[in-house]
């Protein structure tokens, strides 16, 4: 059950709906006696937990955690207290993009793909060579864009 989540279409759909989760993993260790769940998300951990419980991922979550001792169920009003009682602080946590939310990463990816597609159109090359656009090309903002376009 843990293995198939990566390629499940419905899980991807739910992740898209949740929209704050960068990544998550379940780890079974200590000779299959202990379980660790670790995730990276935007905002505080419990903000969206009730929303999350309503989705396909919430169902999966519930099934996995049902094998842990005393888990009250992801939709139980006491579930936040259970998580708080079982959490352990990370000794070290670093991120390469600490200020980017999942929403921004997605937006950046869409913009980048669209930008690359524009660069591939001959009409765009022609527009750059058109003297009528010289003023736009000379602006620092457009120069930044061209710098990204050049390599």
């Amino acid at each position: 059950m843990l293995a198939d989540a990566t390629n499940d279409e419905r899980v991807h759909e739910a992740l898209h709906q949740i929209g704050t989760l960068h990544d998550a993993r379940h780890v079974i260790f200590d000779h299959d006696t202990r379980h660790m769940f670790a995730s990276v998300f935007d905002g505080s951990w419990d903000t969206y937990i009730d929303d999350f419980a309503q989705t396909e991922v919430g169902d999966r979550f519930d099934k996995v955690f049902s094998h842990t001792e005393g888990f009250p169920g992801v939709a139980d009003p006491g579930v936040k207290d259970w998580f708080v009682a079982h959490q352990a602080p990370a000794g070290v946590f670093v991120s390469s993009y600490p200020d980017l939310t999942v929403q921004q990463v997605w937006k950046d990816q869409r913009v980048s793909e669209a930008f690359q597609a524009v660069l591939d159109t001959p009409e765009f090359r022609a527009a750059l060579d058109n003297p009528a656009n010289a003023e736009l090309l000379a602006t620092p903002a457009f120069q930044k864009l061209l710098e990204e376009a050049s390599a």
Partner: peptide, 8 residues
Amino acid sequence: TIIGDARM
């Protein structure tokens, strides 16, 4: 289209 479920 938003993050989460507005009905909550």
